[in-house]
């Protein structure tokens, strides 16, 4: 179908060339700009931080002391906060894999139609992403405020007084409460990916399935889900990656507290690097984060996108 539409809309222009680029070189030419840019402005600074991670350095002095793998050993052998942070990251990632992803898919299915209401709803569910972090932090701190916050006030008003609590100030509730904010602010992200993914599924499949007598659930299972396979890979692997890298929201909303109960690897790395002046140790933490993410995400992505 598309060939015809396409041909009619955009005729392919054939130009004669005086010389031809060798066919084998073509892929590399396409890759060259991105590779060079990426190598210069991301890989190179990151390798510098790898170098720093083998040193004891405050990030300020002209002198650095080589300590070999000591920073890495300390992360796993000595640093209790790092251990707690890793556990928090694991919980966060599991939550991120399940909740915003599921809600995002449901919203995408519900809003995958051309209607004024759909446009409005899509905008609403994606809108938290437009707010700068400072606004998200302030507003949610107010909403969760134990004294005047709208969350406790609402719970009390609907007869759930016993559910009211200190939220961010509560050791046990601080991380879950922050995660609720995360769902609020991030659900639009999987939603728009799934919306884009749904476009790639041909209507013909649905029609064929309906003619074969498939009900809505069967159509979802046998047409929608397989059609979204590529989108699932994207959404789920990004959930894992961002789950281990989470920094902004935790840093803004809880600052790692109360106590150190909500420290995650990203915030702990920031505290170490910038506030405790252990640039070497912070860099080592950054590489540990990167290693965890890569070990989990890459085999998954490779397996899913084969063939």
């Amino acid at each position: 179908m598309s060939e015809i539409t396409l041909g009619a809309r955009r005729p392919v222009i054939v130009r004669r060339r005086r010389w031809r680029i060798p066919v084998t070189a073509i892929p590399y030419l396409f890759l060259a700009p991105a590779t060079l840019w990426y190598a210069a402005f991301l890989v190179y600074p990151m390798l510098q931080s790898l170098y720093v991670s083998f040193f004891d350095w405050d990030g300020l002095s002209p002198t650095m002391t080589f300590v070999g793998l000591e920073n890495y050993i300390n992360i796993f052998a000595v640093d209790e906060v790092a251990r707690l942070a890793l556990w928090n990251n694991i919980l966060w990632t599991i939550g991120a894999l399940a909740l915003p992803t599921f809600f995002g898919l449901m919203l995408a299915l519900a809003l995958n139609r051309r209607a004024p209401a759909s446009t409005l709803f899509r905008t609403i569910f994606y809108s938290p992403a437009v707010l700068p972090l400072v606004a998200v932090g302030l507003i949610w701190a107010w909403m969760y405020n134990p004294h005047f916050g709208v969350v406790n006030v609402t719970l009390k008003a609907v007869g759930l007084r016993s559910w009211a609590n200190g939220w961010l100030s509560n050791y046990e509730m601080a991380l879950p409460a922050t995660f609720v904010t995360f769902i609020w602010s991030h659900v639009g992200f999987p939603m728009i990916f799934y919306l884009a993914g749904l476009q790639a599924i041909s209507k013909d499949y649905y029609e064929a399935a309906t003619i074969d007598g498939a009900n809505a659930f069967q159509r979802f299972r046998h047409v929608t889900m397989p059609g979204l396979a590529e989108t699932h890979v994207i959404v789920l692997s990004l959930a894992v990656i961002n789950g281990f890298k989470v920094f902004d929201l935790v840093y803004t909303m809880t600052y790692g507290g109360p106590g150190r109960s909500t420290q995650v690897l990203g915030t702990w790395m920031y505290f170490q690097t910038f506030q405790y002046y252990h640039a070497g140790y912070g860099s080592a933490l950054a590489w540990v984060i990167a290693a965890i993410v890569l070990v989990i995400a890459i085999p998954y992505i490779r397996r899913m996108s084969r063939g």
């Binding site: 600074p45 931080s49 950054a286």
Partner: peptide
């Protein structure tokens, strides 16, 4: 495959530690 992984690895990089070199 290797080039794809090379780019993917960039997703894992925490931006904070690159600030100073940048």
């Amino acid at each position: 495959g290797a080039i794809f992984i090379f780019f993917l690895a960039g997703l894992a990089v925490p931006v904070q530690v690159t600030l100073q070199p940048l």
